[in-house]
Design a protein around this nucleic acid. Sequence first.
RNA 1: CGGGGAGUAGCUCAGUUUGGCCAGAGCGCUGCGUUCGGGACGCAGAGGUCGCAGGUUCAAAUCCUGUCUCCCCGACCA
Length: 584
Amino acid sequence: MRYTKTFIPTVKEVPADAEIISHQLMIRAGLMRKLASGTYTYLPAGWRILLKIIDIVRDEMNKSGAQEILMPAVQPIDLWQKTGRDVDYGETLGTFRDRHGRINVLAPTAEEVVTSLAAGEISSYKQLPMNIYQISFKFRDEFRPRFGVLRSREFIMKDSYSFHADPESLDETYKVMYETYCKIFRRCGLEYVIVEAESGEMGGTGSHQFTVPCESGEDIIVFTQDGSYAANIEKASVDPLPKQNPLSNPPAMQEVHTPDVGSIEAVCEFLKCRPQEMIKTLIYSADTETIVAVVRGDHDINPEKLAASVGGRHIELADEDTIEKITAAAVGFAGPMGLAQKVNLVLIDPAVAAMAVGITGANKTDYHIKNVVPGRDFALEGENTKVVDIRNAVQGDTFNSKPLLFRRGIEVGQVFKLGKKYSAKLDAKFLDAEGKEKPCLMGCYGIGINRILASAIEISHDDKGPILPITIAPWEVIITPAGAGEEITGAAENIHAELAEKGIEVLLDDRPDIRAGVKFNDADLLGIPVRVTVGQKSLAAGNVEIKLRNESESKKVPLTQAADEIIATVNSLKAKLNVGNPRA
RNA sequence: CGGGGAGUAGCUCAGUUUGGCCAGAGCGCUGCGUUCGGGACGCAGAGGUCGCAGGUUCAAAUCCUGUCUCCCCGACCA
C-alpha cells in the first residue's frame, strides 16, 4: 500500500482528554478518533489492527470447533425480563423505544438471545455439545466511560456460548476454550496472567479471567509470590485473621455522643481511634429482602462475595429511607446490635468475629457505642446470622499462609461456566438418552477485541510510540525512502512491489517532499515492526537498511537481496509469536 | 448520581479576575522559495456567530441565569 493513498492522520500534540498512554498513542498514531464519550471511529490503520486481531481470534475459535454466527445488535427487552437481567444491568443497559412502543436493548452481550435460539433449535442430546460464537459490536451505557478504549460504551467483543448435556462435557469445552484463549493471546503477543474470577452477574459456577498486567488496568489481581494462587480481587480468598485475645474483664457497652460524625474517618478523628477498631455496618437490598453486612472499619465490602453469599442474587446498597427505617437513625450511625430481628439476613465478616472489642454506630442519630464485643453484644451465629468472608483482600492478608501480593491488570478475556442459569429460565431443554427432559448446561466465553489493542500498547511502547507485535501491527513492513531522486524512489518501488507480490503487508511511504525525520517518526508512531530505509547513504554502496522497531541499530543488506532478507525477518518475528507455552 | 475542572482556529492553549485599545500564539493547513537520514527555515495566505439560549449594559469571550457537552476523582463494570 501507499502512504499517499491511505488516511493516516498522525498528530504531534497529545490530545487533551487522553489520560493513559494507549489512548494518547491511538489518537496520535491516527488509529482512531473520538465521536463522543466512549465511542470511537476506527481509521484505516486502527481498523487494520482490529481486523488482524479478529482474524487470529476467528482462526483459533474455528480450530477449537466453535462455529461463527451473527446475532442481532438490537434485542427485545422481554428476553431480559425473563432472566431478570434487565434489573441486574440497570442503567448500564442501553435501550430505546421503537415506533411501535416496544423497548429494545442495544446488545451488551447475548446470553438471552443465544439461549432462546437454543431453546427453539436444540431438542436432543445428539445435537450436543455445541459451541457458537460471534464477533460484533456491543453497547454498554457505562456510568463513566474512560481510559479511551479500555472502558468505552461501544466495543467489539468475541462472545461464544456452549451448550452441553452433562457437566463433563461442559468441563471439556471449558478447558478447550481456556487453551484456545491462551493461544489467541499468545499469538497477539500479549503477556498475560490467568486468574480465578467471580462469575458475578453472569451467574454460574466457575470462571477464569485473562488479564494483562499493567498499571493502567482497572482490575486488581491478587496473587502469591510462588504463583500457586492468583485471583481477581473480586474473588480472592483470604485466610481468616487470628482471633484477638478476649479481654479478661470486658467493660460494658458505652454510648458516646458523636454529633454529625457519620463516616469512619470522622468517627476515628473524633474518638481518637483507628479504623481497624471500628465495626462498619452496611445495609443492602436484594429484591424485597434486606441484608446487613458487617465488616471491620478498615476493610471494604466485596460486592461479588456478598452477592455470592446470597445465592448470586443482585444486591445493591439500600436507599436512605430503608436504612433509616431499619436502624432508626440517620445514615452513618448503623450498628449490628438488634438488627437481626429487623432484616432477612445478617452477614458478618470473619475479621469482625475475630475482634475482641470494637466501636459501632448506636442505631441512634449522632451516637456511637464503644466496648462492643462481637458475640456478646450481637450474635455471630443464628437463624439468619452467619460469619462469612465478604470483604476485599488487603495488604497484609495471607492465603494458604502465604502473603498476598497485588497488582493491576487489564481484563482481555473471561471464561465462565454458566450452568443452567439461562437455559432454565428460557426453556433451553433437550431430551437425554433416557428420554428425560433437562435444561442444557451452558458456558460462555468473551474476548475484548479493542482491549487487546489497548493493552498491547500499554505494555509495549517507547517515547516514539507503540511497539506492536508483528501479528497485530497494521503493516508488517514500512519502506521509508529517505531523500528524493530516481535511484532511491525506484529501489523503494521495486522492493515494495516484490514484497507485496509475496504476500507481505507492506506500506510504502511515498509522500513527496517529506523530510526523512518525519517519515521515521511516523513509522515509529505506527508501531510497524520492520522498517526498510532506502537512502543515498547506503544505496551508494548498493545497500538498504533493515531496522526493527524494538531495536536501535539497523542492518545493511544488499539491494539485490533486500526482499529475501525482509521476508526472512518477518517470518522470524512471526515464528516467535506462534510457538511457546503460555504462562498460566 | 456526588465532588472538582474545562468548553476561544483542525490540534494544544493564552486572553475572562479588572467589560471597550481583544479575535490572539504555537502546531497543522494552502502557495512560493531555500532545505532535505530523526518531527527544517523564510515570505505570503486561508481559517473562529469565543459550546448554546436568554439577561444586564452605550458596549459582553469577559458579568448574571439557564442549558448542553467533555475530562478528572468517587460511588458494586468487559
